[in-house]
């Protein structure tokens, strides 16, 4: 884990590459301008509009204005299913009790409005010994282990 305290106190990344150094633009502006490599997906945006442009994207921020709005989980899945390899960052009302599922859906960075307690985060991310479903994190589902 890489805490970039100099730039951002709350950013948590599970990647080795350097973070993008410019701000993310909206989906509409991204589709209008070819130079941006970072985009922010709002809950009502259609993540599939980004699919033709995945190669020039290094950062997709998925915004959670309220933690109970689960559309961002599907946006993340859709991007990973389409082969997006860049950073997928959950931003906004991101709470420690949601991060395990977010990791499963392909998020590899978090920039929460309120900082996450490091010990609670560790606990949350090591909570599930197994998983029942296939998802973007490619963990081996229980059904696969049963029939290995």
């Amino acid at each position: 884990m890489d805490n970039l305290s100099s730039e951002n106190d709350t950013l948590i990344r599970y990647r080795d590459d350097e973070p993008v150094d410019h701000a993310a633009v909206t989906v509409d502006s991204f589709l209008d301008q070819s130079s941006a490599s970072a985009v922010r997906v709002e809950p009502g945006d259609d993540a599939r509009e980004l699919l033709p442009h995945l190669e020039r994207l290094s950062l997709v921020e998925v915004n959670f204005p309220a933690f109970g709005d689960g559309r961002g989980y599907s946006s993340a899945q859709i991007l990973r299913e389409a082969g997006y390899q860049g950073e997928l960052r959950a931003v906004g009302d991101v709470l420690v009790d949601q991060v395990a599922y977010m990791r499963r859906c392909g998020f590899d960075a978090f920039d929460p409005d309120a900082p996450l307690n490091e010990a609670d985060l560790e606990t949350a991310l090591s909570r599930w010994p197994e998983v029942y479903q296939g998802a973007a994190d490619k963990r081996t589902p229980i059904w696969s282990k049963r029939h290995a």
């Binding site: 709005d69 689960g70 599907s74 395990a100 599922y101 977010m102 599930w128 479903q133 998802a135 059904w143």
Partner: peptide
């Protein structure tokens, strides 16, 4: 039941 238990994408439905 197993598929829907702790489903990461569908735990914050409308």
């Amino acid at each position: 039941r197993q598929w829907s238990s702790f489903h990461p994408e569908f735990s914050y439905l409308p």
